[in-house]
Amino acid sequence: MRKVKDGPAGEALAPDPASRKAKTRRMWRRLRENHPFLIMVLPAVLVVFLFNYLPIYGVLIAFQDFVPGDQIVGPYTHWIGFGNFKRFFTDVQFWPLMKNTFLLCIYGFIIGFPLPIIIALMLNAMKGKKAGKVLQTIFNGPHFISLVVLVGMLSLFFGTDGLVNNIIVALGGKPYSFLLESKAFRPLYILSSNWQDFGWSAIIYIAALSNVDPGQHEAAILDGASRFQRVLHVDLPAIMPMISVMLIMSIGGLMGVGYEKVLLMQNSGNNDVSQIIATYVYKLGLSNRDPQQGYAAAIGLFNSIINVVLLIIANTTSKKFSENSLW
């Protein structure tokens, strides 16, 4: 039902055609005034549309018994509704996949989220700014190592004949199959990921800290705050909005760990803990001799929906308890 305005006597008034025309004119005027900016943003919008929104059309195969070569929408499309989802929920792999994915993500989050913040605060609090810059460069270096090289390094260091085992043996211990043991998979994965990314992730916090008013630090010095107290009461609150936003985004991606590194580290020895949703989807949909792309798409879609739900919950919670939110 169309909304109508109330008149002076409370009677309903029909929308004024003149005001609608005025609105339309204003809209066109704004478009004309802002057209350089619209033209500037157009390529980015097109790219996002072509590579992010248009492919969403392909998600329809999650509701089909899809075989490569089939039409996504056509007379021979075999729709099965939520059949793929039901299949996944009753799959023996369901709970192990959920558990492995969740644990890998949550452990990574617990270590990986606060670490860049701590590093950023430490670097910012350092007296010697030159030393801080050198350290920052060192911390950022691993980010540029490719995943393949990183996993290769892990093999070199933690393999049966690797450096770590050589040290263990030299100290009188027995070598340990870090790469083959299930117990070692998660620590290796998480610690190596954090080692690679913590410096890069700290950049955004370092940038936020550079905007802190030096006067607040001076006021805190005069108030008698120690260096640590200044970090706690000046720096940390200053970057709290940034932390909130990053937290929301991290929670939103909690179940979205990528398959590449896991796949590179995966083997028969650690398969029980390294098989996650992303690698399962990859195997089902792409590397299998008999690809089940519809089923794989359904699992992937399910994973994405969980992430969206988590993102909404995190954003709503943050909005309620603080002034920070993504939207």
């Binding site: 008013d213 006067g215 607040q216 001076e218 006021a219 805190a220 005069l222 108030d223 008698g224 705050a225 107290q229 009461h233 000046v234 609150p237 200053a238 709290m240």
Partner: peptide, 26 residues
């Protein structure tokens, strides 16, 4: 000694009460 700054340098996340009480709490 105590100092009043040109830019006030108040702690934005604290209330007025907490701003004034901060040094005493320390």
């Amino acid at each position: 000694i105590a100092m009043v700054f040109q830019s006030y340098a108040l702690y934005p996340h604290m209330t007025v009460y907490d701003n004034m009480a901060f040094s005493l709490k320390l």
